[in-house]
Design a protein around this nucleic acid. Structure first.
Lengths: 360, 360
DNA sequence: TCTTGTTATGACACCGATGACATGACACCG
DNA sequence: CGGTGTCATGTCATCGGTGTCATAACAAGA
């Protein structure tokens, strides 16, 4: 591969002048510039980043570590990859800033993280980003103090800068919207409590209820391990059928996420209930493949992964440029409610009707 | 950041000896090795890949270009990201081989590809991989002849080595399986003909029919632009209802992909038909979030993205090592049929029953 | 005892760019 | 006309490893 010396010789100038042309630095005569550019083109010259980097100490690289790509191999296998929208957001913002992204995947093995970090450091990345596949707490090996790092979709005890989805606010907004639409008996099938979202979203649900002066009824809140391979659907079925036989059954079922909502659609229909005529359903995540393709389309809340990615990139770039070296805070990113036809605008169903339906 | 000279000084040896210890090359005394390793640890030394690379001309990097990550912003927005399993497969195989992956996304703009290739070349990647978001023909700018390149999920006119899903065979296997299960009237709602999969899969469908001696009935094959934002569902509804009113209606509907199948579930149920008791449904892709979460779980065919990724990586590695420089062939990767409960084992429905249902 | 071979280590140039500094040619100013 | 500033370009050292070759110490074989 051609070097600047080859170019210099062909153009009849010194290597330094070639360097100047490449970087548009210092004054260069028009004729000289022309000659150099022609020579570069003729030789198919591509600058060696390695050499440039050695001298300038700037790699233009950012390292991204994630378990997101390989996560499907983990337990709870049935995942899609919407979390990769985070990666997309980061990639887009970094490309704009002129950085190149190196991506490594843990292949599901957390113990590989130190090795991945070392690999990145050996490439002299200017910053690191760690992306988790779902909102969670993590514990990462320490990185050199002068290497900026941002966590996305996760947080740690050391207070490493983090970008997180505002699950509590999102669920509150959705439930508030449902209340505005006339719903009063709102059921919530939450994710299991072990998950951060399984804690924050129910909290947002209760926030909304209490803001509207609606009493919280524990009978309408359940945590469901819906993604167990076999037991999941049955568990959901039982929970739902229990709620529907309450003296005052819900007019809408909020689900822990869109995937659960998809299952709930099938279950409700098997029970002979029409969505949304007889009962409304709402999800969480705005996982488009599901939310927009379900029939009827699903009312849900954005899990703003792409925006989180962009934020993460911006924050890391700030840290790299030295603008905010030691800000130890977490950034919450809220997502908007997407109102679709799976939820009715007014309370659709009185109790007697429901009972009739269930007595079939 | 510490250099080998710092390590050498601290350990009381020469830089070259440090280099030897790092690379496990040449004979080094046990005591010396010990001293060097201690010094490296004490200094938190991380080798600079840039420097190593300059001398050795080996970057250990592979560049991956894809439109897959950003594809959701394109027309037909409602996509998931299962194509990223290709990236996962590549990443896994490359990591095993000791290569680091640099990933760049076209951000939906094909005209950025040359620039991305240049960036990669400036990092002296040892090979390039281009991943398309769905099976298609592409036309890429030329790369230097000595840089190996592999296409995944796409092919070009120049005969660049490609890894492709065997759509024809997959569909044939699925339909054959349906025939074995007793189905004779098999409808096929194909993707639009503009897509490669919209051509190959129907061909596989017809292969299976003719192999079984079943006459091909054009009334049972339709191409559907199901992912049009609004018109899509209506189009599907009309097509399905037309097929169901045929003198001999289908006992199973094969869909162009799983996402279409999800829509079809909703439509059939709105028509008052039970899946699979009254009509069977099959998909394509084995898009797990959909196929396993739908109720009942969807019979479908694997789109073997992960395996294709692994294959692509292996093939590129072969080319890099010089094992197969000028093999210009495409590799087809077939996926297995996943039989789930959305399809019955025996023909479930006689024509009269169906007519009754439709007369409601 | 003198080769010859093996092991352990060092000296030094070099990979390809760029930073610091130098130089030569003009132009402009007083 | 000498001094000063600007433009255009070149020289050379340097970044941090590694390839090549040299060297020293010592053991084994002739």
């Amino acid at each position: 591969m051609a070097t600047i010396y080859d170019v210099a010789k062909l153009a009849g100038v010194s290597a330094k002048t070639v360097s100047r042309v490449m970087n548009g630095e210092g004054p260069v005569g028009a004729a000289t510039r022309e000659a150099v550019e022609t020579a570069m083109r003729d030789l198919g010259f591509v600058r060696s980043n390695a050499a440039r980097m050695m001298r300038s100490q700037k790699s233009g690289l950012v390292g991204l570590i994630t378990g997101a790509i390989s996560a499907k191999n983990q337990s709870g296998a049935k995942r899609g990859l919407p979390d990769l929208f985070i990666v997309q957001g980061i990639q887009t913002a970094m490309a704009e800033a002129g950085f190149t992204l190196m991506i490594a995947d843990t292949t599901g093995r957390q113990d590989r993280v130190p090795h991945l970090i070392d690999t990145f450091l050996s490439h002299r990345v200017e910053g690191l980003i760690y992306v988790a596949e779902y909102h969670q707490e993590v514990s990462l090996p320490p990185v050199p103090a002068h290497t900026p790092m941002v966590l996305v979709n996760c947080f740690d005890q050391r207070g490493t800068p983090a970008i997180l989805p505002d699950d509590r606010r999102g669920q509150r907004d959705l439930v508030t919207r449902l209340i505005d639409a006339g719903h009063r008996r709102i059921a919530y099938l939450a994710l299991r409590t072990g998950m951060v979202a399984g804690q924050l979203r129910p909290a947002g649900y209760r926030d909304a209820l209490s803001a509207a002066g609606i009493a919280y009824d524990p009978a309408l809140l359940a945590h469901c391990d819906f993604d167990l391979t076999d037991a999941g659907p049955q568990l959901l079925w039982d929970t739902i059928s229990q709620m529907l036989t309450l003296p005052e059954p819900p007019s809408v079922i909020c689900c822990g996420n869109d995937q659960m909502a998809m299952l709930v659609y099938g279950i409700l229909r098997s029970m002979g209930l029409k969505v949304p005529e007889q009962i409304s359903v709402a999800g969480y995540d705005n996982y488009q493949v599901i939310a927009e393709t379900l029939y009827p389309p699903l009312t849900t809340v954005d899990l703003p992964y792409s925006a989180m990615g962009v934020r993460a990139a911006q924050r890391l770039l700030d840290m790299i440029s030295g603008a905010s070296r030691d800000d130890r805070t977490a950034t919450l990113v809220a997502g908007a409610v997407h109102w679709r036809t799976s939820a009715t605008e007014r309370r659709p169903l009185n109790i007697l009707q429901l009972k009739t339906v269930r007595e079939d």
